[in-house]
Design a binder for these strands. Structure first.
Lengths: 193, 193
DNA sequence: GTCTATAAGAGGATAGAC
DNA sequence: GTCTATCCTCTTATAGAC
C-alpha cells in the first residue's frame, strides 16, 4: 500500500476513501484486467494475423516479449494472484478464475475459427486451456531459471502438438513426412531465441 | 515464523539458533524437498508400473490425488515459491529451479526409457518440461477454479499428445483409426473424475 | 474528497539468563 | 542449545481538520 501511495502520488485518505481495504483495491485491479484483456491483448494480436492458429502463437510470442522486457521477472499477474491468494480470498479466487476464463474463451474462439484445420474430435476449450498451461508453465519455469529458454521449449512442444493436430485433420496422408512441417510463424519465433 | 514456532512447539531462540533468518529456514526446506523427491515421489511412482510412459501419468495422478485431498488448495510448494520469491531472493530462485530440474530429469529418464515408442526426433528433455507445465498449469487453473476439472483437462490433452507421439513412432500406419486409442491407464484416471 | 498525523498490530529478530 | 521477554520496524488502516 505504501508503495502504491508513493508511486501514485496519492495520500492515504484519498485512496481509502474509494477502496476501504487492501483487498477491495485488488478486486478493482482484477476487474480492470478483465475489462482490458480484449483491447490491450487480444485485439492487437488479432490485428497481426488473420490466421486463427497463427494467432495462438503470436499471443504466446507477445508474452515472450514481455518476459524479455522484464528479464524473466514479474510473470503473469493473474497467475501470481491465483497461487498466492486463491486459498484465503474467495473474491480474488473468483476474479482470477474469471480472468483465466476470459483468456481461454478468446483462444477457444480462434480454435473454433480454425474449423476443419483441427480434428473435429478435439475439444477446443480443453485445447485453449492447454495453451494457457503452456504460457503459465513456461513463465513459471523461466522465472525459476532466470532465462527464457524454458518458455521457448514449452512453446515448441505446443507447436509440435498443433503440427500433429493439423496433420491429423488433413487426413494424415500415408506419404506424409515423419518430421512434421513447421509453419513460418513458429520458425520466426524460434529464430529470436 | 510465529505459525511455525507454534505448530512445531519450538521456542524462538531454538529455531533462530539453527536458522538465523527466515530465508535460511526456507533454504533448508527447499534443500529437503530436493533430497526427498526420489524417495517420496518418484520411487513410489516407479513401483506402480514398469511402463515408462505409464509412469508419467501415474505421477500426474499422484498430484491429482493430492489436490483432491487439499480441496484444490495449497498447490505445488515449488511453484508457489517460484512465483512469489524468485525475483527478489536469488538463492530461493536457484533452489526452486534445482527442484524443477530434478523433477524433469526424472521424467526425462522415463521418456528415454520409452525408447522407440516415442519418435526419435522428439527432445526428451523438452517433453519432460511439458509434463511439468501440464502439472503446474493444471494446478494453477484448478486452484483458481476451485475444482479439479482444469487439471483433468490438462492431463487429457497431454495424453492426447502422447497418443500422437506413440502413433508417429509406430510409423503412423495409413489404416490407423483417426481417433487415437486410449491406454488403460488414461481411462482409469478419467474414471475417477 | 483530500490532507496530515497517527493509531494498532503483526511480524521478524534479538538479548541475556540458564 | 534452550528459555522468556521484548524490541523494533514495517504495514494497514483510521481520525479528524479542511
Amino acid at each position: 500500500m505504501a508503495t502504491i501511495l508513493r508511486e501514485a502520488d496519492v495520500n492515504s485518505g484519498s485512496l481509502y476513501h474509494f477502496f476501504p481495504t487492501k483487498e477491495s483495491l485488488l478486486i478493482g485491479v482484477l476487474e480492470r484486467y478483465q475489462r482490458l484483456l480484449r483491447p490491450i491483448v487480444m485485439d492487437p494480436v488479432e490485428k497481426v494475423t488473420d490466421d486463427p492458429i497463427g494467432r495462438v502463437f503470436v499471443l504466446l510470442d507477445w508474452y515472450r516479449s514481455g518476459m524479455l522486457r522484464a528479464q524473466c521477472k514479474l510473470g503473469c499477474p493473474i497467475g501470481n494472484l491465483a497461487l498466492e491468494l486463491a486459498d484465503n480470498h474467495p473474491d480474488v479466487r473468483r476474479l482470477a478464475d474469471a480472468n483465466f476464463i476470459g483468456w481461454t474463451e478468446a483462444v477457444k474462439q480462434w480454435l473454433i475459427d480454425a474449423g476443419d484445420r483441427l480434428p473435429s474430435h478435439i475439444n477446443r476449450g480443453e485445447l485453449a486451456q492447454m495453451v494457457l498451461n503452456t504460457m503459465e508453465g513456461g513463465i513459471m519455469q523461466s522465472r525459476a531459471r532466470g532465462e527464457v529458454a524454458p518458455f521457448d521449449a514449452a512453446v515448441r512442444q505446443l507447436r509440435h502438438y498443433f503440427d500433429y493436430l493439423e496433420r491429423d485433420a488433413k487426413g494424415a496422408p500415408p506419404d506424409a513426412t515423419r518430421q512434421p512441417k513447421r509453419s513460418n510463424r513458429s520458425r520466426r519465433s524460434r529464430r529470436r531465441t
